[in-house]
Amino acid sequence: MKRIYISIVLLLAIIGTCIGAVIFLSYQTETLIREMDKLSDDFDPEDPKAFLPQTEEVIEHFRERTIVFPLFIRQNTLMEIEAELEILPALLEKGEPKDFVASLSRCQTRLETQLRLEMPLLQNIF
């Protein structure tokens, strides 16, 4: 009879972890996307250097919020997004606002795609 309890505990633990992971990923990803949205909305192409502290803050938040993401999603994807984010300060310093906006938008899209891929949707399962 012990076996049935072990199996129930195992299955419940997995279901719990999965639901927890989806909620956690959604919350953290949506928060990051909102922050990026705000940065994109506030961005003034006339004075790009003024947005350096805000951009660095977004990068720092990305690192903090995605610290446990590699437990659930592929590390490569995260590293690609982080690499894209890390060039944002350089783009601001060089005064290339168009590239800055494009890079930021790519990061947002990648995060959204990653979140969508983790959702238990039929197209992801089959």
């Binding site: 076996r3 072990i6 590699p70 590390q75």
Partner: peptide
């Protein structure tokens, strides 16, 4: 690059399913 849980979770799940099925 693959998350460690993508290996552990299916193994634990299969063990759980197998135990449940046998019961």
């Amino acid at each position: 690059g693959a998350p460690i849980l993508s290996g552990i979770a299916p193994i634990a799940l299969l063990v759980g399913l197998e135990l449940l099925m046998s019961c």
